[in-house]
Amino acid sequence: MSSLHSDDQSKPCSMRNRTDILHGFQVAFFAMSRLPTFPWTFLDREIESDKSSELISDILKQTCLHPLCKKHPPTVKYRRLFLTELIKKHEAAESEPLDELYDALGDVLGTDEGTEECYKSYLLPCGDAISLLENVAVISEGTTGLVTWDAALYLAEWALDNQQLFNSRTVLELGSGMGLTGIAVCRTCGPSRYVFSDSHPSVLQRLRDNVQLNGLASQTSPSVCVEDLDWATATEEQLREIGANTVIATDVVYDPDIIGCLVKLLSKILRCSSPESPPDVFVTSTIRNPDTYNCFKHQLENMGIHYDVLTGPVSHVFPYNRVSALEMIKLYI
């Protein structure tokens, strides 16, 4: 776990001052957001009115020269492209010379680019950073589970706004992927126990590595474990042993071939618990294929599982595409 200075992350996206600009650059850089999404326009406006290199220097200190970048850096290629763009902005503004900017680019150009992995870091409102080792490619080793998806970021934001559903509870996460949502919940929401789960061997290994990377494996509170949970073979006995009060899943509705197993598992989770205290079950999805998502909902209904669509804004904490078709539902019987 690393700590970063973090301003109020609930501010609207408009950059009102230099603090907002610095924060916007820092958040986007460590999450390896697409370069066009950075607040370049606001930077242009600031450096046009002030020909000093102070703001560019501060951006450099909060990104490529920040201690977190030394410990868990974005890819060499990404840093090279970022610094190249920053230099273009600096030169176009005819600002004061800034040797450290070119020194930083020189250091990056002298580094080997060859890697299939990268670190992405996501800033929390408390000032901590969640750093995850992810794959550069969206699909690798036969899975899409080695990267963090928008729905996981949304669910993490929703959890931060609804901490009472996790505080002092046992939480089971289905399809944990790289662990972003669960680590955010463990860091900020105070669960008594958190069970990460997945079934793909490469995803499970990387998940364990990321949990340990963020200092959770050695903690006693909350109690944290990573389980190999196969949706097709999971038994009611296993689920009773976990005893989850809250169950979450994100981006698990993407393949028509596995929807049946997922719905049966959700049915077991809802039915094997005490009727007096059923778990709160939430599923968050990016709706890429409406037919697949509607099939999921129909199968829920056929199994006697009802759902409510949860709406309403969430605090903006992480950078991701907010125009994506995201939907969150709560399940019950």
Results as ranks from 00 to 15, higher is better:
residue 202 S to C: 06
residue 135 N to D: 14
residue 154 Y to E: 00
residue 114 G to D: 13
residue 10 S to F: 07
residue 103 D to K: 05
residue 153 L to I: 02
residue 200 H to F: 04
residue 56 I to F: 01
residue 102 Y to M: 06
residue 99 D to R: 11
residue 68 L to E: 06
residue 207 L to S: 14
residue 112 D to V: 13
residue 247 V to C: 07
residue 189 C to I: 11
residue 170 T to P: 00
residue 12 P to C: 14
residue 195 V to S: 08
residue 270 L to I: 14
residue 30 F to W: 10
residue 103 D to E: 14
residue 207 L to K: 01
residue 27 V to I: 11
residue 149 W to P: 08
residue 192 S to D: 03
residue 111 T to N: 09
residue 169 R to C: 11
residue 9 Q to Y: 09
residue 13 C to Y: 01
residue 214 N to K: 03
residue 309 V to G: 05
residue 284 T to E: 14
residue 14 S to D: 12
residue 168 S to Y: 01
residue 95 S to Q: 13
residue 49 S to H: 02
residue 147 V to W: 03
residue 204 L to M: 08
residue 239 L to V: 04
residue 216 L to Y: 00
residue 182 G to R: 13
residue 261 C to S: 04
residue 280 D to C: 15
residue 43 L to M: 12
residue 275 P to Q: 03
residue 11 K to E: 08
residue 37 T to K: 15
residue 39 P to E: 03
residue 105 L to K: 08
residue 70 K to A: 14
residue 100 E to W: 00
residue 299 Q to W: 00
residue 321 N to F: 00
residue 30 F to A: 09
residue 22 L to Y: 01
residue 257 D to W: 10
residue 163 Q to H: 09
residue 240 R to N: 04
residue 271 R to D: 10
residue 2 S to N: 09
residue 155 L to E: 04
residue 94 E to H: 12
residue 316 H to E: 15
residue 7 D to R: 12
residue 80 R to W: 04
residue 107 D to L: 11
residue 316 H to Y: 02
residue 137 A to S: 10
